[in-house]
Computed example of a mutant assay.
Amino acid sequence: MRFSVFTAATPEWSPEEAVRELAAQGWDGVEWRITDQADAETPGFWAGNRATWPLTGLEESVPEILRITNEAGLDFSAVGGYAQAADHDNVERMLSATAALGAGRVRVTLPKLPVGDYRAVFAATRADLEWAVERAELHGVQVLIELHHGTIVSSASAAYRLVEGLDPRRIGVIHDIGNLVHEGFEDLGAALQILGEYLAHVHVKNARWWPNGEFGIDGSTVWAPYWASLHEGQADLDWLFRALVAIGYDGWVTLEDFVDDNRPREKVLSDDLAFLRGAYERALMWAEWVASGAGDDDGAGPAEQA
């Protein structure tokens, strides 16, 4: 596997600073955030992010993106776009830029809930993706959709239903275990098998549910999900890597760490890289153990292994 960072997670750094630090730490690649964002006095993950390239005028930025990425010795794991699948003009822009960068793959986003008539919106989005796949074929790239809470596709089952029958060379799914803590979690072994040839990319972050300080009308505690560091969240990342190894996945794993815990950003990322590498190494050891005949071979979680 190869490891990269989505630059939403590096808001304080300029693009040059981001790639320089990632390369120095030993990351294999970068996933650039591309969107028109709001300004902010203090750089943040979603507004004022200094490591984000604007969608408006993206064509003019392509040579600079390519230059600083190549000079740092990093590869593109994908392009982190935010163009809605129904926004054909900007999807075309992202596909063209991805081809020019040689980045291979680009994310498009899906309608957010609530959508009114879910079936109608789902069908319309399928039509949008059919169009995107045709354009991706012409550009020689791949469209990615992400398992994401609060959208029409929060689970592997829903994502497979949306892309089933389309060319997996031109459309794939991003599995994101942190998003699944919010909504859409399915057994990891089953979920990855459901996606099958459509599993094209993996995002990793973590989250956990906490009481949000409010109470229901009956006095019950109200819970809400919050982002957490990789080692403190509810998602079992060892299970994720075992499940990925079990199906032979050997592609990109991109970090998305949106926790601000007062550690310097370079410390957060170096700790995260060590964590991810450790989880992968343990998964490989587990696979050897399974191959020896001592254990299960389905990437089972702790409870199932007991």
Rank of each mutant, 00 (worst) to 15 (best):
N179G: 04
W223I: 04
W46G: 00
V222A: 09
S154L: 01
I194M: 14
S292P: 02
I34Y: 11
G219H: 12
A9V: 11
R169Q: 13
Y160T: 03
L66Q: 13
D250W: 00
F215G: 00
P168V: 04
D272R: 05
H182I: 09
L269N: 11
E71G: 12
L55E: 15
G44N: 09
A235H: 00
D167I: 05
G213H: 11
A158I: 01
A24K: 12
R277Q: 15
V121N: 11
D261P: 13
L66N: 11
L269W: 12
E137P: 03
W289E: 08
P11W: 10
G48M: 09
A72S: 10
A158N: 05
R67P: 00
A159E: 08
S61C: 07
N262G: 13
S14L: 15
R50H: 08
R93C: 11
Y118Q: 09
E92K: 12
M1V: 06
A47H: 12
V163W: 07
Y82Q: 11
Q37H: 14
V202N: 04
R208M: 10
V163F: 11
V181M: 01
G248W: 06
A78K: 08
S220D: 03
S154R: 04
E232R: 10
Q193I: 10
V108A: 10
A303T: 12
F258C: 07
H139W: 09
L195E: 01
G196E: 04
W27K: 13
A190D: 10
L237T: 02
W289Y: 15
A207D: 03
W131D: 00
A8S: 06
A100G: 03
A132H: 06
A306T: 08
N179L: 03
V163H: 08
